[in-house]
Structures are given as C-alpha cells and as structure tokens.
Design a binder for these strands. Structure first.
Length: 205
DNA sequence: AGCACGATTGCCT
DNA sequence: GGCAATCGTGCTT
C-alpha cells in the first residue's frame, strides 16, 4: 500500500468534490499500537447553512457542531439515536460549516479488533457478519473504535488519518441521502456517493 | 426542568 | 415491511 497521507489542502475544498474524492481512500485508526484500516466505499455530503439536512442549517452553531465551523480536516463525531456514533470529516475552503459523513468501509486490516468492537466476539465470522462489519455509519464507528472522544481530532495527524489509494476505484454512483425525511426540499439532493461495485455499502438504492 | 427527536441498527412479523 | 432501543442535545416552559 502506498503511504501518502491526505493533507489539509485535500479537505479544504468544495464539499461535493471532497466527498467524491474520499471514495477509495484508506481510513486508518491507530489503536493500542495496531493499525485498523478500512477503505471508504460510501459517503454523504452535508453542505452547511443552506442544507436543511445539515446540523449547521440556518447557521445553527451549538457545542455539538462547533467543530464544523473550524478548519477543514478535523473529525466531527456525534451520538445518534442515543446509541451510535457517526464519523464525519469537516470540509470546505471558505469557513462554511460543512462536512462529509463516512457511511461505509471495506475492512482491510485489523479484522480481529474490528469484530471485537462490533460483536464483542473473537474467532471466525460468518460471511454475513464480515460483510456487516463496517457497512453503515454506526457500524463503522463500532468496528473502527471511533467514538465521541475523537470529536475535534485533527485528521492531519498520526492517530486517525487518511491515505491515498493506489488504484482507480471504478464507477461512482450518485443518490439521495438516507434517513433525512425531515429535510424538506433537500430530501432529494443527490449528495450520497458510493462505489458501484462494492459489496460493502450500507444499502443499495 | 421538561420534552421531543434523531445523518441507526437489529429484531420481529 | 414495521418498530423498539436509548440518551445527549437543543429548544421550550
């Protein structure tokens, strides 16, 4: 695997561009001397103050979403439904409070530790359990051991960071975002992106 | 202080 | 397909 880390200028660009470019990249989390690695196969863009699905819609600025108002390339991690975490990457080059939700990863390295986080289980996984390791925003946080203690973490660093991929990634699919029924006109915006041939996406559209 | 709700998931019919 | 779990957050009283 080539080891080219994504730097600030990658994240500090227009959010839809960053979202699509994130597909295929490797997400690394160093935990207890081990590198957990997943390849990004599905994302959603949240485009700030004019996007009714976005936490910063209308300029809303609270302790929870404060990090979105800062520099690009930091982690925005929040609790959803009282049970799961969602991992986002802050984007944009104009100080706009925007981010990309990472929705699914292909497991690459550190499978044992991933299943420990997901299933509290060691040993062999069924084919179905392996496919379900990281194929959803809540699931990938469990598997990658990401939680709210990582909110605000700089991804241009050595704890959680991203690496360039070495190969082309194939066809990118575009679709409306998932579970944002409340978002009125933004419900249909085509801001979900995923790899057409990946078995590890959260759901087919 | 109270309360409605969610960028999800897993289990049920 | 439906729906409960579970609690921090943000808004209202």
């Amino acid at each position: 695997m080539v080891k080219i880390k994504l730097e600030r200028d990658f994240y500090a660009r227009e959010t839809l561009t960053v979202a699509k470019d994130l597909l295929g990249k490797y997400l690394i989390h160093r935990v207890a001397g081990e590198e957990l690695i997943g390849q990004i196969v599905e994302v959603e863009a949240y485009k700030g103050i004019h996007d009714k699905a976005c936490h910063s819609y209308g300029g809303r600025r609270t302790p929870r979403n404060e990090i979105m108002y800062g520099v690009a390339g930091k982690a925005y991690v929040y609790l959803i439904y009282g049970m799961y975490n969602c991992f986002n990457i802050v984007t944009s080059d104009k100080g706009n409070p925007e981010a990309v939700l990472i929705r699914a990863l292909k497991p690459i390295q550190g499978i044992e530790k991933m299943q420990q986080g997901r299933y509290k289980k060691v040993g062999n996984l069924s084919k179905q359990q392996f496919k379900n390791l990281l194929n959803g925003p809540g699931k990938l946080c469990q598997g990658m051991h990401i939680n709210r203690s990582h909110n605000g973490l700089d991804l241009v660093g050595d704890k959680i960071y991203l690496l360039e991929q070495e190969k082309t990634i194939g066809e990118i699919m575009t679709a409306p975002r998932i579970n944002i029924d409340y978002a009125e006109e933004a419900v249909h915006y085509p801001w979900r992106f995923y790899l057409a041939d990946s078995p590890f996406i959260s759901r087919s559209s």
